[in-house]
Simulated scan of single mutants.
Amino acid sequence: MASFTVTSASVADGAAWSPEQLAGKDVSPQLSWSGAPRGTKSYAVTVYDPDAPTGSGFWHWAVADIPAAVTELPEGAGDDAGSGLPEGAIQVPNDARLARFLGAAPPAGHGVHRYFVVVHALDVESLGVPADCTPAFLGFTMASHVLGRAVLVATSETPGPERIEVSRLVPASADAIFAVLSDPQGHVDIDASGMLIDAEGDPVERAGDRFVVHMDREALGDVPLGKYDVEVVITTLVPGEEIAWTVEGRIRPHARHIYGYRLEPAEGGTLVTSYYDWSEVSEEWKNRITFPVVPESSLKATLGILERTVRRRGDSPTR
């Protein structure tokens, strides 16, 4: 079918929606169109998100029976009253069952969503659909009447949390657990990745302390880094309560992602919370690799190994 042109003062094609078009403000975009096919007798306007995790996308706005003489909708036309719509046009309920424009609100951490803003040129003056029909029914009804479409794509993304936390009750004292976490060799003992081969250094006592860990990336078989050393730099240390660190390797600048543990007394032992935080990682590093580099499953596995290590150290006469 024929294509024609739609533009918007609210958003450029391929760009992110402005705050006005996000959920909470819910201001419909300004739209202007031109070049519709000969024989156009009315227009419909729809805004659809195919990336919504529903199995069928999400319709944010649907307007039918816009007269052929109209080639523009002002920003905010799609409010509850349809105050900016021309006479005769109707808004059918969106997928939230609201007869208005509903702003973008992708789930946090779900990535970039696309919003297809489409002006449909139709060969009838009215589609005759019920005012309370669904956008899908509207689409079905107008499918055989479309002469052309003008398409503009906007985007939106809601950043997810840049931190993972998992917890486990370990049947041991906080001091016994902390003794493992503050010992460089303890880091090797509880490693769930298979990359940590050995460590050198004294048990850490304060923020700023460092020790060396010998790594072997070949254990994962993903990145051809081979064997190399990194320095573990303690960023937080409260004896018996919390320890956190970052890793400094050969590549500059350092990534500055943080690994840590919080310890809280609990019935039956100590509640240990392992966390991984990449909120301070620079854009340069985020462009190099995908964060998080440590999945939640690895944190859970390490907590299990930590419990086993604490138990074995308690049973060993040399520890």
Rank of each mutant, 00 (worst) to 15 (best):
Y48D: 09
P50G: 11
D51I: 03
D51V: 03
D51H: 05
T54R: 09
G57R: 04
F58Y: 14
W59D: 13
W61A: 09
W61K: 06
A62N: 08
A62T: 08
V63W: 01
V63P: 01
D65N: 13
I66V: 15
P67I: 02
A68Y: 03
A69N: 14
T71E: 10
T71V: 12
T71Q: 13
E72T: 15
L73T: 00
P74Y: 08
G76I: 05
D79H: 05
D79L: 07
D80C: 11
G82V: 00
G82M: 00
G82W: 01
S83L: 10
S83K: 07
S83A: 13
P86W: 02
P86S: 04
G88A: 07
A89Y: 01
A89S: 11
I90A: 15
I90H: 14
I90Y: 13
I90K: 13
Q91V: 10
P93Q: 11
N94K: 08
N94S: 09
D95Y: 05
R97C: 12
R97G: 12
L98Y: 14
A99T: 05
R100Y: 03
R100D: 00
A104L: 06
A105I: 12
A105G: 13
A105W: 14
A108H: 09
G109E: 11
G109C: 09
G109Y: 12
H110A: 15
G111S: 11
V112R: 15
H113G: 04
H113Q: 10
Y115H: 06
Y115S: 03
F116S: 14
V117H: 13
V118W: 12
V119G: 03
H120I: 03
H120A: 09
H120C: 06
E125T: 15
E125V: 14
S126L: 13
S126W: 13
